[in-house]
Nucleic acid binder design. Structure first.
Length: 801
RNA sequence: GCGGGUAUGGCGGAAUUGGCAGACGCGUUAGAUUCAGGUUCUAAUGGUCGCAAGGCUGUGCAGGUUCGACCCCUGUUACCCGCACCA
C-alpha cells in the first residue's frame, strides 16, 4: 500500500475538527498546561515557512502534554490591526475590515492544513469590537490610575506613512516599516507611563524562566544605571542639575556640558558673550538627525558658553560650561559634569578643547587615554576621599552630598514612556472625550466598545491628523461627565495594544462582562510556555509585561508575570542563506511544500532543520530526506508482527528512545528527538520486524511530530483508537541500561582498544582485562604504568612512561 | 564603541556538559533492481600515508590547565544579531 499523504491528512484533519478533539476543557480540576505562540499579523502574502517553525514546536509540546493527561489550551488568533492592511485598503478601495476578513480566512486555511492542534473555538481577532472593547477598557483603567497622559512632544514623524512612530520603531532614523525618512514634529500625544514600572520590569525577570539572551535584552532595553544627581551652582546665579554614574570622581570634574536643547541656554542669552555662535551650533544640532550625530562619533564638537561658569560644589572651583550634541536632553537631566580623566567621551572632548585633565583614581595614564575601568583603583586628588576605594568613595560622597543638600542618590533608566497615539484609521479608537470644562474624560465603560465609524476614505490627512478627525458624527459628542458638547479623541492605538493582553482573552474568549472571568484566569494563568521570534523580545514582550503588571495591581489578573517561560526560535532563511524576501526571490511557500510532500513532512523537516534557537537555511533535498523517513515509517506495516511486550533485542533501545524524545521535546531539542526516532527506525529495519507493542510506542513518540501518518498507522495496525486516547509512553531507567558495555581504552589519552564487557564487571576486572588485551599490551610493552584512570561505564585511560 | 552570540566534514548539524569527535539527515561514489529516468535496496564516505593490517593528523588561530579539552582559562581573528555618544 502506498503512503497517500494527501488523503490521510485530509481524513484526519476532518476527524479532529468534527470531534472537536483539541478544545480545551473548562474542567478546572484537571492539571493544566498553557502553551502560547505569537499570533500572526494576517498579511496579504499569507503564511510564511517561518510561522510553522514556532507553531509546530509548541504543537508538539501541546500534543505530548495532552497524551500525558494535561488539559491543554493551545489557541490561535489574529493581530489584525495595522498599517499594511490599511495601506492596501487605501490603494485598492476595499474596506480594511474586508481585507482583514479575507486574509484571516486564507491564514486559517493554511494553518489548518498543517495539522496544528489549535482550539479553534477560542479564536480571537484584535479588530473584533467584542475584543477591542477590552483593549479600550484597559486604556481607561490606565488613564484612571494616571498612567495615560497627554504630552506635547517632539515625535518621530514618518514622511511616507504620515504617522507618528515610537522611538522603538525608528531604525537608523528611518521608519521601521517602510524605510522612509523620519523627521521631528511637535504633536500632542497620548503616552503610557511604562517608566513607572521600569524597576519591577527588571527585578521580576528573576522570577521567570526566560532564555538568557531574552532577559539580557530586556534589561539592556530598560537600561538601569545608578549614580547621583548633583546640583552645580553657576556664576549666573541659576543652578544646573546634573546626573552622573560616577559621583566618586567629582573632584576630577573640570568642565560641564549641557545639551544644546537645554532651557538654560535661552535663559542666559544676555550673559553669553558668544550667543550668536552658540545659537548657530544649536541650530545645526537640532537639524542633525540622530544618525548623523552618531556618524560624528570620532570627532567631538561643541561651543563654550562665554560669560557663565559652573562651580564645582565640592571644591568651589569655577569651571567652563559647553554645549555639545553628545549630551542628550532626553536622558538624565540633559547636563553632565565632565571628568576627562575617567570617561572616554569627556577625554576626547577635553583633548580637542585643551581642557585640564585631573586624575582622581590612581592607576591609569591620563595623557594617553581615559582610565575608565578603574574599580580597583585608589582615590587621589580628592581631599576627604583620598585613599578610599572607588566603591567606598561613592558611598561617602553620596552621604556628603545628601547631608549638604546638594545632591542625592539617583537611579536612571534609558527606557522612555510609550507613545501610544497613532494618526491612522485601522486601530482601536482611543476612548477619550475632550470637554471644554472637564478636560479629558474617558468614555463611560458601559458605552464600550467605542467602534470605528464606517468611512469612505482612510487616507491620512496631510496635517497629520487621523482620518477619524474628518468625520463630524464621530468627533462631535457630549461630555460623559457634564453632558456639554465635547469632541472625541481621533487618534487610534498602536498595534502593540491588542497584542499586549491577547493571551488573557484565550482563557475566556466570549466573556462580555470582563476581559476574562476570574476563575478562568486563576486556572489558566500564567502562560506556561511562550515561544516567539527574537524580534519581539524587547517591545512586545516588555509592553505586555507592563500591561500585565498593571492589571495585577488593579486586581484583574492573579499573577505578577504573564509568561512563566519564554523561548525564541531562529529564523528560517532562504536556500542561499539570506533572509527570505520577495525581492531576493528566495521565498518558500508552505502551501507548495504541503502539496508536494505533505504536512507531516513539512513539520518533521522544520523541526529537524537544525538547532531550534538558531537561524537555518532552507534545503529542498533535506525536505525530501524527511519524506523518505515517513515513507519508511509507512512500510513498517509490512513487517508488523504480534506481541504484547517489547522483544529483548529492542527493549533497551525502546526505553532509551522514550527517555530521549521525552526530554528533548521539553528542552527545545526537536532535531535530536527526530534523529533518535530515525535511529530507532534503522534498528527496526535491521532487525526486519517490529511487534505491536514496539509499534504502538513508536507511533506515539512520533505522533506529536507527524500526527496524521501516526493516527492512520495506529488505526491500520488495528489499535482502532485515536492517539489522543492513548498515554504517552513511559520508560524505566533500569531498562535503559545495556547488559554489555563497550569500554574504550586509552593509553596516554589516545584510543588504542575497545573492551566489550558485561555491565556488572568491577573496575578491577576491567583494568585486568585491559592490561591483558593484545593491542594494549603492545603499546605498554617496555614502559612503566604510572596511573590507571577508570570512569565508570565510560572509559579507561592508562598513563605510561 | 558597548552588549550578546557564533566558529565542528562538501552541506544542515550531533557530542550524555571534561571522557570513543563527526550521531541523524542531505550530498557524493560504487554496486543491485529498472527498457530508461525516478524510486527503492546494499556498501563506502573528515584529511593524509598505506595493497592491507594499521599509523599519523583533525573542532577558526596561538598558547595554557588536565591522565584526558569542541567543552575550562589567557590572548587573537572572522562573522552574525541588538543598541547607538545613556554621563
Amino acid at each position: 500500500m502506498k503512503y497517500d499523504f494527501k488523503s490521510i491528512e485530509q481524513k484526519w484533519q476532518k476527524i479532529w475538527d468534527e470531534k472537536d478533539l483539541y478544545a480545551a476543557k473548562n474542567d478546572y480540576s484537571l492539571p493544566k498546561f498553557y502553551p502560547l505562540v505569537e499570533f500572526p499579523y494576517p498579511s496579504g502574502q499569507g503564511l510564511h515557512v517561518g510561522h510553522p517553525r514556532s507553531y509546530t514546536a509548541l504543537d508538539i509540546v501541546a500534543r505530548k502534554k495532552r497524551l500525558m493527561g494535561y488539559n491543554v489550551l493551545y489557541a490561535m488568533g489574529w493581530d489584525a490591526f495595522g498599517l499594511p492592511t490599511e495601506n492596501y485598503a487605501i490603494k485598492n478601495h476595499i474596506h480594511p475590515e474586508i481585507v482583514t476578513k479575507n486574509n484571516v480566512a486564507n491564514f486559517k486555511k493554511q494553518l489548518k492544513s498543517l495539522g496544528l492542534s489549535f482550539d479553534w473555538s477560542r479564536e480571537i481577532n484584535t479588530t473584533d469590537p467584542d475584543y477591542y472593547k477590552w483593549t479600550q477598557w484597559i486604556f481607561i483603567q490606565l488613564f484612571k490610575k494616571g498612567l495615560a497622559y497627554k504630552k506635547e512632544m517632539s515625535v518621530n514623524w514618518c514622511t511616507s506613512c504620515k504617522v507618528v512612530l515610537a522611538n522603538e520603531e525608528v531604525v537608523n532614523n528611518a521608519c521601521e516599516r517602510c524605510g522612509s525618512e523620519v523627521v521631528r514634529k511637535v504633536k500632542s500625544q497620548w503616552m503610557l507611563k511604562i517608566t513607572e514600572y521600569a524597576e519591577r520590569l527588571i527585578n521580576d525577570l528573576d522570577e521567570v524562566d526566560y532564555v538568557e539572551r531574552v532577559k539580557v535584552s530586556q534589561k539592556n532595553w530598560i537600561g538601569r544605571s545608578s549614580g547621583a544627581e548633583v546640583t552645580f551652582k553657576t556664576t549666573a546665579g541659576d543652578d544646573l542639575l546634573i546626573y552622573t554614574t560616577r559621583p566618586d570622581t567629582l573632584f576630577g570634574a573640570t568642565y560641564m556640558v549641557i545639551s544644546p536643547e537645554h532651557p538654560m541656554v535661552d535663559k542666559w542669552k544676555d550673559l553669553i558673550g558668544n550667543f550668536s555662535e552658540v545659537e548657530k551650533y544649536r541650530e545645526e544640532a537640532l537639524r542633525k538627525s540622530d544618525f548623523e550625530r552618531t556618524e560624528l562619533v570620532k570627532e567631538k564638537t561643541g561651543v563654550r558658553l562665554d560669560g557663565v561658569m559652573g562651580i564645582n560644589p565640592v571644591n568651589g572651583k569655577e569651571i567652563p560650561i559647553f554645549i555639545s550634541d553628545y549630551v542628550l536632553m532626553t536622558y538624565g537631566t540633559g547636563a553632565i559634569m565632565a571628568v576627562p580623566a575617567h570617561d572616554d567621551r569627556d577625554w576626547d572632548f577635553a583633548k580637542k578643547f585643551s581642557l585640564p585633565i585631573i586624575t582622581v583614581v590612581a592607576g591609569g595614564n591620563a595623557e594617553e587615554a581615559a582610565y575608565t575601568d578603574c574599580a580597583e583603583g585608589e582615590m587621589v586628588n580628592s581631599e576627604f576621599l583620598n585613599g578610599l576605594s572607588v566603591a567606598e568613595a561613592k558611598e561617602k560622597i553620596i552621604a556628603y552630598l545628601t547631608e549638604e543638600g546638594i545632591g542625592k542618590e539617583k537611579v536612571n533608566y534609558k527606557l522612555r514612556d510609550w507613545v501610544f497615539s497613532r494618526q491612522r484609521y485601522w486601530g482601536e479608537p482611543i476612548p477619550m472625550v475632550n470637554c471644554p470644562d472637564c478636560g479629558w474624560v474617558p468614555v463611560d465603560e458601559k458605552d464600550l466598545p467605542l467602534t470605528l465609524p464606517d468611512v469612505e476614505s482612510y487616507q491620512p490627512t496631510d496635517n497629520g491628523e487621523s482620518p477619524l478627525s474628518t468625520i463630524e458624527s464621530f468627533v462631535n459628542t457630549t461630555c460623559p461627565k457634564c453632558g456639554k458638547a465635547a469632541t472625541r479623541e481621533t487618534d487610534t492605538m498602536p498595534q502593540w495594544a491588542g497584542s499586549s493582553w491577547y493571551y488573557l482573552r484565550y482563557c475566556d474568549p466570549n466573556n462580555d462582562s470582563a476581559l476574562a472571568s476570574k476563575e478562568a484566569l486563576n486556572y489558566w494563568g500564567p502562560v506556561d510556555w511562550y515561544n516567539g521570534g527574537m524580534e519581539h523580545t524587547t517591545l512586545h514582550l516588555l509592553y505586555s509585561r507592563f500591561w500585565h503588571k498593571f492589571l495585577y495591581d488593579i486586581g484583574v489578573v492573579p499573577t505578577k508575570e504573564p509568561y512563566a517561560k519564554r523561548t525564541s526560535h531562529g529564523m528560517i532563511l532562504g536556500e542561499n542563506g539570506e533572509k527570505m524576501s520577495k525581492s531576493r526571490g528566495n521565498v518558500v511557500n508552505p502551501d507548495d511544500i504541503i502539496e508536494e510532500f505533505g504536512a507531516d513532512t513539512l513539520r518533521i523537516y522544520e523541526m529537524f532543520i537544525g538547532d531550534f534557537e538558531k537561524a537555518a537555511p532552507w534545503s529542498v533535498s533535506s525536505v525530501k530526506g524527511c519524506k523518505r523517513f515517513l515513507e519508511r515509517i509507512w512500510s513498517l506495516l509490512d513487517i508488523l508482527t504480534e506481541g504484547e511486550e517489547y522483544t529483548s533485542d529492542l527493549e533497551s533501545l525502546m526505553h532509551k528512545t522514550i527517555k530521549k524524545v521525552s526530554y528533548d521535546i521539553e528542552n527545545l531539542k526537536f532535531n535530536t528527538a527526530i534523529a533518535s526516532l530515525m535511529s530507532l527506525l534503522n534498528a527496526v529495519s535491521d532487525k526486519g520486524s517490529i511487534n505491536k507493542a514496539e509499534f504502538k510506542t513508536f507511533m506515539l513518540l512520533l505522533n506529536p511530530f507527524a500526527p496524521h501518518i501516526t493516527e492512520e498507522l495506529l488505526q491500520l495496525a488495528g489499535f482502532g483508537v485515536l492517539a489522543e486516547e492513548c498515554k504517552w509512553p513511559e520508560y524505566s531507567e533500569e531498562k535503559c541500561k545495556e547488559s554489555t558495555l563497550v569500554i574504550p581504552v586509552q593509553i596516554n589519552g589516545k584510543l588504542r582498544s575497545k573492551l566489550s564487557v558485561s555491565a556488572d564487571k568491577s573496575e578491577e576486572d576491567i583494568i585486568n582485562m585491559a592490561l591483558s588485551d593484545e593491542k594494549v599490551a603492545e603499546f605498554i610493552a617496555g614502559k612503566t604504568v604510572l596511573k590507571k584512570i577508570y570512569v565508570k561505564g565510560r572509559l579507561l585511560n592508562i598513563v605510561v612512561k
